[in-house]
Amino acid sequence: MLAKTHTWTPVCALDAIVPHTGVCALVNGHHVAVFRLGDDRVHAIDNIDPKSGASVLARGLIGSLGERTVVASPLYKNHFDLATGECLEAPEHSVAVHAVRVEDGRVLVALN
């Protein structure tokens, strides 16, 4: 089986994202929420809240539930695991996770 190759899209400078917050980016026409944690780890998930259809997940609150780092949707307060995209309250509303990395101080995202 061949490994999937990623097309990396620069989103912004890491310093443009305040720690413990997210930003929305349009990557190849796809709304992506990019989050920066306090230790400068970054995560990227779909930005569309599956329950409402609104592009709002980047504006959610980051926290933890047990061992999971999550974002709470600002609309319905569902929690999405930043590592897996799983919606903890309603797994049928889970979102896609995207590859993300920091290179030379810039955040790059590749759609999965």
Rank of each mutant, 00 (worst) to 15 (best):
residue 71 V to E: 01
residue 96 A to R: 06
residue 39 D to G: 04
residue 112 N to C: 03
residue 4 K to G: 08
residue 71 V to F: 00
residue 85 G to K: 00
residue 63 G to Y: 05
residue 90 A to D: 14
residue 26 L to S: 15
residue 13 A to H: 09
residue 4 K to T: 08
residue 57 L to T: 09
residue 52 S to M: 07
residue 85 G to R: 00
residue 67 E to N: 09
residue 45 I to F: 13
residue 72 A to E: 03
residue 43 H to F: 13
residue 34 V to T: 01
residue 36 R to S: 13
residue 85 G to P: 00
residue 35 F to R: 06
residue 68 R to I: 09
residue 33 A to T: 07
residue 88 L to P: 01
residue 1 M to Q: 15
residue 4 K to N: 05
residue 30 H to R: 09
residue 96 A to V: 07
residue 56 V to L: 13
residue 93 H to D: 06
residue 65 L to Y: 09
residue 68 R to Q: 11
residue 31 H to Q: 15
residue 110 A to G: 01
residue 78 N to R: 12
residue 40 D to A: 07
residue 45 I to D: 11
residue 22 G to M: 02
residue 7 T to L: 12
residue 24 C to A: 15
residue 41 R to F: 11
residue 74 P to G: 05
residue 34 V to C: 04
residue 76 Y to D: 05
residue 59 R to P: 11
residue 95 V to N: 01
residue 20 H to L: 15
residue 18 V to G: 04
residue 92 E to M: 11
residue 24 C to R: 14
residue 83 A to I: 02
residue 36 R to H: 07
residue 60 G to V: 07
residue 22 G to S: 02
residue 83 A to V: 05
residue 62 I to N: 05
residue 23 V to R: 03
residue 13 A to Y: 03
residue 5 T to P: 10
residue 27 V to N: 09
residue 39 D to S: 04
residue 24 C to W: 13
residue 111 L to S: 00
residue 56 V to M: 10
residue 19 P to C: 07
residue 9 T to S: 07
residue 101 R to L: 06
residue 102 V to T: 03
residue 75 L to N: 05
residue 15 D to R: 14
residue 74 P to N: 05
residue 46 D to V: 06
residue 107 V to Q: 01
residue 22 G to L: 02
residue 107 V to I: 06
residue 34 V to D: 02
residue 66 G to N: 06
residue 92 E to L: 10
residue 4 K to A: 07
residue 84 T to V: 03
residue 97 V to G: 00
residue 39 D to M: 06
residue 24 C to D: 15
residue 8 W to N: 02
residue 82 L to K: 01
residue 65 L to H: 13
residue 50 P to F: 03
residue 36 R to A: 11
residue 105 G to Y: 01
residue 80 F to L: 03
residue 32 V to G: 08
residue 93 H to K: 04
residue 10 P to W: 03
residue 61 L to I: 12
residue 42 V to R: 08
residue 105 G to N: 03
residue 74 P to R: 11
residue 52 S to N: 09
residue 71 V to K: 02
residue 90 A to Y: 10
residue 14 L to T: 05
residue 18 V to I: 09
residue 88 L to W: 00
residue 35 F to T: 08
residue 6 H to S: 08
residue 46 D to W: 05
residue 89 E to F: 01
